[in-house]
Write a protein that binds this DNA or RNA. Sequence first.
DNA 1: CTATTTTGATTGTAAAAAACTATTGATTTG
DNA 2: CAAATCAATAGTTTTTTACAATCAAAATAG
Lengths: 310, 310
Amino acid sequence: MTITQLYYVLAVAENKNFTLAAEKCFVTQPTLSMQIQKLEEELGIQIFDRTKKPIGLTDVGSKIVTQAKNIVNEANRIKDIVDQQKGFIGGDFRIGIIPTIMPTLLPMFLNTFIKKYPKINLIVEELNTVDIISKLKNGHLDCAIAATPLDEEKLKEIVLYYEPFVAYIPDNSQNNSKKELEVSDLDVEKILLLQDGHCFRNSVLNLCKTNNFMGEHHFQLESGSFETLIKLSDEGLGTTLLPYLHTLDLNEKNKAKLRQFANPKPSREVSLIFSKNELKIHIIDALKNTIQGVVRGAIAFSDVEIVSPK
Amino acid sequence: MTITQLYYVLAVAENKNFTLAAEKCFVTQPTLSMQIQKLEEELGIQIFDRTKKPIGLTDVGSKIVTQAKNIVNEANRIKDIVDQQKGFIGGDFRIGIIPTIMPTLLPMFLNTFIKKYPKINLIVEELNTVDIISKLKNGHLDCAIAATPLDEEKLKEIVLYYEPFVAYIPDNSQNNSKKELEVSDLDVEKILLLQDGHCFRNSVLNLCKTNNFMGEHHFQLESGSFETLIKLSDEGLGTTLLPYLHTLDLNEKNKAKLRQFANPKPSREVSLIFSKNELKIHIIDALKNTIQGVVRGAIAFSDVEIVSPK
DNA sequence: CTATTTTGATTGTAAAAAACTATTGATTTG
DNA sequence: CAAATCAATAGTTTTTTACAATCAAAATAG
């Protein structure tokens, strides 16, 4: 059994076609067919069910494919080890970002980053926090950006920034007297929130601890965008909170409904997260510096009461 | 990079000698030398420091060796997958047993087992519970026998038997009047216990929950045998509890100091433990049946109040 | 229902890789 | 300093891998 044979198996499993798989592997079809036959012979089992069209996997075959992925992944880490040793900044780099951070943060740093490190092949994926955690652990992601703390044993978090929330109040006239909003002015039971990315720091508003926070509403937003939230709010369903960076590109009409909080502002902690035994530390470090560079300009840190997360 | 090359690297790392490593790999020394050179060239780094005597690893080298072990382990699992498919009962099978179970249980089933399954190459290791858990998770063990429950997410437990404890009372005359001992008769603060294997079932005696149980003594037995415990007890340091199977081969003098408990007897749950994605299920099943077969004769289950573990 | 296309297996051959034997060269040991 | 140890090198042989060309079976089109 060779690693090459496993690559061939994975290619066929993925493309369900020997000819196409061979192309992807940059070899001719007979070469690939022979190698797979050899492997099947060595193991004494059939990996592929060639009677089906398109080609299918046998029962053992699918287990072998799963394991082959593990082996190939582990094998690829050898290159990462060497790259790290050489201080090489390049190669594939997979990053996961939660939906509520993606649209505002990614455009801010992507251009700077890929220009500064042209050898890195950045692969960005939008994922929710649960998927991010599992993919970081099994090596499908090199790092991620999400609301923290996650309190995961095997993951390391580096805080990128604290993003204050701004209240979005559809009927903003009634409290117009006060300039800055106090947290105590909010009726937390009536607030509209997304599931993801609303863990507040410093217990200013302690909402994330109740895992199934519903408030007075009879629905829960499992996922979705802040656009949805704004529209629901406009429909009279209540007040909502928007992360500061999201408020920057609202239209004027909506901006009028925003109300800043007084200090200490409720805010979310946004961090770079990676596995403790991640090898591409140099790239993570480069990414961290790039993001912190661009964010420093956008968020005035003095606005937020910084308290080191536990 | 090939799996063969990684095997060669591991052999050299282990033997610190190219010639010896080559023998272990059943190839000539130049073959092995060449392959390792080729790998080093492909990666563009030195794995071995050949200036040292005996040969040493470079910094990257040791990282690569660690990863190579992972890859080779994962690769070996392919064979396990195929074996499982074929229903093959054989090959290497690594089992860990905690010290307080090993001496009594292993002799009871080992002979029966290896005669019944001559194709299995059983490798038994005495390990404490902590090591067992980590080695099951990283694939260094195929299964283990320990006191349960462990409450480990990724591990599965199959209860083999409940082993009642018997009190060992050095000064057995004073309570001689009563025939069976009640748990309440014991002063739990004065009891001598081993760290391992003393998690009592059914909260009859609730000792394992206090992680650093010291009682009135000024010492803790981190490990050791029940022989030590008996001698300490004889020295007047207190009463102790012995697992039922251990009491069977005490000398007459010591047996006189034993006192059975009344029902419900305090007992320990002994289970077969394995990773949830362990492939050698057939072997584990064979082992379970063998052990339960021999234990059924030794422990009268009616003696123990069986309550299903939570 | 036959012609055509698609797709994987087969065959024969060339190139590449891996293994072996024999030998060298450097270092350590007696 | 001679002998022994041990990895590297050189030169061959064997094995493996890849390729081009072709075949055979199945699916699709006319």
